[in-house]
């Protein structure tokens, strides 16, 4: 799987919807279908700072590829976590560190969903990036 392919699938999914209501419904559905995170993982060290709702992200690298899991107590934020999981899961570490946040514009999240400014999605992406960067430095 590559980041570019994942991204284009997500972009075309979102483009199916005309109204903000439908886009939110899609995001909420994504959130509802996300595998809940095991309680053991919902600890302070996995908490992402800078989000209004609690967000936990757990990263792991196997064979140079990222495996990311996450959860949130707010459903819209959970949908965003699900989006990031779809976007980054199984991508190579090298590919991830070269991505930037501009894909939010391409997906239409910045334009259509006004909440991206406050929901901490940037903080989540930063956490994923930093995890990969630290792995490469080692």
């Amino acid at each position: 799987m590559s980041f570019e392919i994942n991204k284009s699938v997500i972009v075309s999914d979102f483009n199916l919807f005309d109204s903000w209501e439908e886009r939110y419904e899609h995001l909420i559905d994504l959130g509802k279908s996300l595998e809940p995170l095991d309680l053991d993982f919902k600890n302070n060290s996995n908490l992402v700072e800078g989000c209004q709702a609690n967000v936990w992200l757990v990263c792991e690298i196997k064979n140079e590829k990222l495996n990311v899991m996450g959860d949130s107590d707010a459903i819209i934020t959970r949908g965003l976590v699900a989006l990031l999981v779809r976007l980054f899961n199984n991508c190579s570490v090298k590919e991830i560190i070269h991505t930037n946040n501009s894909f939010l514009d391409e997906i239409g999240l910045n334009k259509h969903l006004s909440m991206t400014r406050s929901n901490g999605i940037n903080a989540m992406i930063k956490k994923i990036h930093e995890y990969c960067l630290n792995y490469i430095k080692k």
Binding site: W20, Y24, Q52, A53, D73, A74, I75, I76, T77, L113, S114, M115, S118, N119
Partner: peptide, 21 residues
């Protein structure tokens, strides 16, 4: 059963300013 942040986000989408959290 709904997080205050989710309510605030959707209200904002409908041009309603409230505080949450």
């Amino acid at each position: 059963g709904i997080h205050s942040y989710d309510v605030g986000t959707l209200l904002d989408e409908m041009n309603i300013c409230v505080r949450t959290g």
